[in-house]
Amino acid sequence: MLTFYQNIIYNFFISLGVLLGGCLLGGVAAALVGHPPLKTMIDLCERFKIWAIVVALGGTFPSFKVLETGLFNGEIRGLVKQMIYILSALAGAHIAYRLIYYLEGSGKL
C-alpha cells in the first residue's frame, strides 16, 4: 500500500515518462516513415498530454468514483487527496510538454 506522498511522486513520474517516452519514440517512428520528427513530436505532445494524466491516475473511473463520493457523501479528505494526485500528474505531464517544447527550440529556458 502506497502512502500519500509516494503516490504523488508515482503520479508525477508516470505522467512525465508517458509523455516523454511517447513523444521521443513517436519521433523515431516519424523519422522511420519519412515524416518530420520534431514537428511530429510536438503534435504528439499536445495530443497525449491529457492521456498521460489519465494513465498516471490508473484509468479514469476510480478517480471519478472518489470525486463522486467526495462531493456527494461529504468525503472532503478523499476529494482533496484525489485533487492533489491529479495536480501532481498534471505537473509531470506539463513539465514533459515544456521539455519537448524547449527541445524544439520554440521557447527559451
Binding site: 521521443l24 519514440l25 519521433g27 523515431v28 523519422a31 513530436m41
Partner: peptide, 18 residues
Amino acid sequence: GLTVMNVVHMHTIDRLYR
C-alpha cells in the same frame, strides 16, 4: 540508441523537410 540518434539529428531532418 535510436532515440538518442533521432534527438541529435531531428533538427537537421526537420530543416531538410522544410
